[in-house]
C-alpha cells in the first residue's frame, strides 16, 4: 500500500487558473458581438403592451425610437404626470417631431433614408390622444413606416 502514500506530507496543489482569462475573454467577446450599446436613458415610464401577431425588426441601425409615457418619479416634480414624448435623451413636444425626423434621416446614408422604421414605444396606460398626435406629425414629415413596439404573448386577455 505504500505506493499510494508516497508523498503523504505534501499539501494539495493549487487549481490551475491559467485558462480562466481565456474563458472570461470568450464570454466578453460573445457579449460584445451579440449586444448593442444602450443609447438612451429612459425618462418616461415604459411598459409596452403585449400582442400575438408580432414581427421582428430586422436592422437595428434603421430603427428610430419615439418614447411616450408618464415621466418617471424623479422627473414628475418638474414635468408633471401627464404623458410626455421623449426623443433621444430629452422631453420634447409634438412640434419637435418634424425636426427629429429630419435629423434622424440626415444621420443615415442617402439610400437608406426611406427605409427607416419609426418605432413607437408607448406605455400601456397612455391614452390614444397623444399617440394620434404623434402619428399625424409623422405623417406630415412623411415618416410612414411605423412600428408599435409590443412584446410577445401567446394569448391576449379581455
Amino acid at each position: 500500500m505504500s505506493k499510494f502514500r508516497k508523498n503523504g506530507k505534501k499539501s494539495q496543489p493549487a487549481v490551475n487558473t491559467a485558462a480562466l482569462p481565456d474563458i472570461v475573454f470568450m464570454l466578453l467577446f460573445f457579449f460584445m458581438v451579440t449586444t448593442t450599446m444602450r443609447e438612451t436613458t429612459l425618462k418616461v415610464e415604459n411598459k409596452i403592451p403585449f400582442a400575438t401577431e408580432i414581427e421582428k425588426l430586422e436592422r437595428k441601425s434603421l430603427v428610430s425610437y419615439i418614447y411616450i409615457g408618464k415621466p418617471t418619479k424623479e422627473f414628475q416634480t418638474v414635468f408633471g404626470t401627464a404623458p410626455r414624448i421623449q426623443l433621444n435623451d430629452a422631453f420634447k413636444t409634438k412640434e419637435d417631431i418634424f425636426q427629429f425626423v429630419e435629423m434622424e434621416r440626415d444621420e443615415r446614408d442617402e439610400l437608406e433614408r426611406n427605409l427607416i422604421t419609426w418605432s413607437l414605444k408607448v406605455d400601456q396606460k397612455t391614452e390614444m390622444g397623444i399617440v394620434t398626435e404623434v402619428k399625424q406629425e409623422l405623417r406630415k414629415a412623411n415618416a410612414l413606416k411605423i412600428n408599435y413596439s409590443t412584446k410577445k404573448t401567446d394569448k391576449i386577455k379581455n
Binding site: 448593442t36 450599446m37 408580432i54 410577445k152
Partner: peptide, 24 residues
Amino acid sequence: LLIFFLVTTTMDTDTGLIRRLPPP
C-alpha cells in the same frame, strides 16, 4: 471589461406590429 459591456449594452431586439401610415 466583461462587466462593463454587460452593463452598457442591451440584447433585446425590438418586436412589434409593423404598420404603414397613409401619406399626408
